[in-house]
Design a protein around this nucleic acid. Structure first.
Lengths: 208, 208
DNA sequence: CAATATTGGAGAGTGGTACTCTCCAAAAGT
DNA sequence: ACTTTTGGAGAGTACCACTCTCCAATATTG
């Protein structure tokens, strides 16, 4: 298919596709003569993945680029991609106090989690705890435990539900679940918060 | 205190404070003469809240402005603020298919959640489910149930842990927990995912 | 065969966000 | 008298994610 059809199939404007090509987010099509290239299903797929990560996952193009690099790194197995993709999914200017880092390490040990030692998620989590402390809100240990337990249940279910198939599909599914499952989970949590708050501080105007 | 001290206390540069004043995110100080104003603890507090929402919560200034407007709306009780703040916390260009909306409504009904009928979270969630469908990944019903159950447990614990105090503190705590608890939860989930994946697809290089 | 449309490629331009800088005269501190 | 700080406002900057413009080289259509 030509670029116009690729655009139609994915609802991505031609100039944007050209931009992604220039930025190396999308592999060039097969050159046919000097002024046209043929694209295929893999381009449709990749373009949809990019848009999903950007629009729904809220990732920057730079982050998408890193994630795609991991997805395409054939030498990595599914599990390794998870760690690498996590690294690519999150910001890179991380700092955290020693206290929070220790708290995170303890939590991980306590739950018997097997985590890449150099995982940036450790520091990200410690930084998030610090941010709460900084505004004078300490996250209680038992609340943190509730979070951790819930996170473990969710993660187990997510990993168990990953479709088995060729490496490429599994890796894509992994990235998608991680990136797009986040918004789903947060939206559900907010709905549940409304409900919990309604039950506790009961309000008159709740048409259910 | 003068603006310089406010800057020192909060680690926010003076020009940025001036910018926030201009943008109406921060109330003006008490004018003392034509060329200086006095700031107090409430400004320190507010500035820290803004930075926490922006830096850790990842909110845009526009979103922060909406949230603060709800925080300052004295006529709203704690529960109402939650709904209103949720509305302010999330984007406003929401769309979702009828199918997903119905699925969300059913889920809410099934769990007996009391949710503002006009809650934007409903549509946000439906849209997130649509996004997954669009890339060919259907979120299984049992996985969605796991999410919902976990979300309910988390939300209950969060609401139960809200410190009781004056309205202002409770509202601020509510906003903070919602906005900053998200990153904490997502980071924990990623750590748990790594662990779940390690246990399932066992890899040789996991130094714990 | 002529007229029209499409393509790849590359550079320039746009719109939005969040600052950051510059300047000023008034006032305060020393 | 002199230096410093302030409020206020406008201009400038940096980054991001496009989006537009232009071109010559094809393809397609009548």
């Amino acid at each position: 298919m030509w670029i116009a059809e690729l655009s139609r199939r994915t609802d991505v404007p031609v100039p944007t596709i050209k931009y992604y090509l220039r930025e190396g987010l999308l592999a060039p099509g097969e050159a046919v003569g000097a002024t046209r290239s043929r694209y295929d299903e893999s381009h449709v797929r990749r373009l949809r993945l990019i848009r999903a990560l950007v629009e729904s996952g809220g990732l920057s193009l730079a982050r998408v680029r890193s994630v795609l690099a991991e997805v395409d790194e054939e030498s990595r197995d599914v599990h390794e991609v998870l760690g690498a993709a996590h690294g690519a999914l999150i910001p890179d200017d991380l700092t955290a106090t020693v206290e929070s880092r220790l708290r995170v390490d303890e939590l991980i040990a306590e739950h018997g989690w097997l985590v890449f030692a150099e995982s940036t998620d450790r520091i990200l989590l410690a930084g998030a705890l610090d941010a709460l402390e900084k505004v004078g809100y300490h996250l209680d240990d038992d609340l943190l435990q509730v979070y951790a337990k819930a996170a473990a249940e969710i993660a187990d279910a997510e990993v168990a539900h990953l479709p088995s198939g060729d490496r490429q599909s599994m890796v894509e599914a992994t990235v998608l679940v991680t990136a797009l499952g986040g918004p789903v989970l947060l939206a559900l949590r907010r709905l549940a918060q409304q409900s919990a708050s309604a039950k506790r501080y009961g309000s008159s105007h709740l048409p259910g």
